[in-house]
Every structure is written in C-alpha cells, then in structure tokens.
Design a binder for these strands. Structure first.
Lengths: 129, 129
DNA sequence: CCTTGACCTTCCCGTGACTGGAACCCCTAT
DNA sequence: ATAGGGGTTCCAGTCACGGGAAGGTCAAGG
C-alpha cells in the first residue's frame, strides 16, 4: 500500500504520516523505487495514533501509549496514569476557557454594538471597571 | 522606567515586552545608552495587551483591538464583532475538549489500573470496541 | 581605580505538530 | 514522446514567545 491509499484509509494527511515516520512512530518498509510500503500493522498503528491524537494526547504520550500497546506484558496502571494526567490537563484547559468565556460574554453583553464609540469591552481591557 | 520595572508592574516577562515592540504593538522611546524608556502610555498599552491575551485573543486581534482602543471615533460594533468571533472560537474549543474529556473519562473509568495487561483504554485507541 | 553584580542590549535557536511549496523521480496511458 | 498523477526529499513557515550566549551600562563597595 502506498502513502496516498494509507492517507485515504486512515484519514491522516500524507504529510503527517511522513512526519510520524521521521520521528520514529512508524517504520514502513520501502519498495525498490523508494516508495514507502505500508502493511497491515502500519495501518493499525496509524489508526491508533489518529485516535490518540484526536483525544489530545501529545506525540510523546502517543509514543509511550503505542509502546504499551505493543507490549503484551504492560500493566494497565501505566496506561491509566498517562490517561489521567492528560485528562487533568484537559480539565484545566476547560476551566481556563470557561473563565475566558464568562468574562468575555459579560463584556459582549454589555456592549451596544452600534456605531457609537462607547465600548465596555475596550473599557474592560483598558482596566477601567 | 526601564524594562525590568515595566515587567514587574505589568506582570509581563521582559522577553514578551521586547517581542511586542518587535512586532510593532508598542514603540517605547530610547535612552542615550540604548535602554528602552517606557512611559505611562506604554504601560497602559501593555496592560491592555496583557488582559486581551489573558482572554485568549490572538496577537493580530490584539493589534486591531488596540487600534480601536486608540481610535476615539471607533464604532463599538467593530469591537463587538471581533469579540464575538473570538467567543465562538472559545466555545468551539470548549466543545472539543468536553468531547475529549467525556470519551477519555469513560475509558479511564473502564480501566482497572492494576498490574494486568488488559486495558480498555488501549483497546479503545486500537479501534476494538 | 577596579571589580562585582544587577541590569540592559541584540542575535540566534528551539518549541509542537505539523503545513506549504519547490525541485525532482517513477509509473502508466495515450 | 508526453502528459498526468503518483511518489520522494528538503527547506521554510506557523504562533507567541522562552532560553541562552556575548557583550554594553551603571551604581555600590573595597
């Protein structure tokens, strides 16, 4: 299977697949003409990576998770620890964004949004409360 | 006022302040020895920028907002439009993160987290449902 | 007068996870 | 022979800074 077909099947851009090879997440074989040859296990790994990335895991987390995935003697506790760490980061980010949203939507609500210059949004940003 | 004092007063790192000058957000004067000299208006702008960045506005949004802030003849509608666009992005990101959190926390809940290899998290990432 | 240490300056590289583009090779069909 | 649609490598750019090197400036102390 060539990279274009793999991109179609996995939903990952060819550029991303090449990048994953470059950083050592996958190691597809090569044809005589230099083309990458992807096999079933490569597709499997790429799908794994796509799902992990979609859940927001970093590349380094993905690398670790992939190693655990391949390791039949892993302890599920190791996986769970990584996942919980990531979940905590997600929740922290959600909290940050919620705070931004609240502040911003209050400012927006207070703003007339017409052609006059008076603007509570700018006042808020300027430090005038 | 030198950059160190400004950093203390605004809470922005000196590196960030220099960067803001480099990209033209502020234009502090210079002393004879080459040191930046910050005046009241520079501090004001930097505080504005700090608040806008804390609300997650991009640098380019900040540039526009700052221009509107300085423009006494602005229409508040222009400000409101930018703010609403940004709010929409924040809300989209929150929705994404909520979806990630839900999926991830379900997987985590299903995982024993002990020393055995069975792991619903890895199964989920591997595509086995 | 010299040194020490805390400032300040510019410049360049690195971050994360790709994305875009250039220049070039390979294969098939016409 | 050529046209096109693959593929390849390599380089540069993204965003908003942060780290660190190499060196200039200034006030205080010995």
């Amino acid at each position: 299977m060539n990279i274009g077909d793999v991109a179609t099947h996995t939903g990952l851009p060819a550029k991303t697949i090449r990048y994953y090879e470059e950083i050592g997440l996958i190691t597809p074989q090569r044809e005589l003409n230099g083309y990458r040859r992807f096999r079933e296990q490569d597709l499997h790994k790429l799908n794994f990576l796509g799902r992990a990335r979609a859940l927001g895991f970093t590349i380094e987390d993905c690398r670790t998770l992939l190693a655990l995935y391949e390791d039949e003697t892993r302890a599920s506790a190791d996986v769970k620890r990584i996942a919980r760490g990531h979940l905590a980061q997600i929740e922290a980010k959600i909290a940050d964004l919620n705070a931004m949203r609240d502040t911003l939507s209050h400012l927006i609500d207070a703003c007339a949004g017409d052609d006059r210059p008076d603007c509570p949004i700018l006042q808020g940003l300027g430090g005038e409360d």
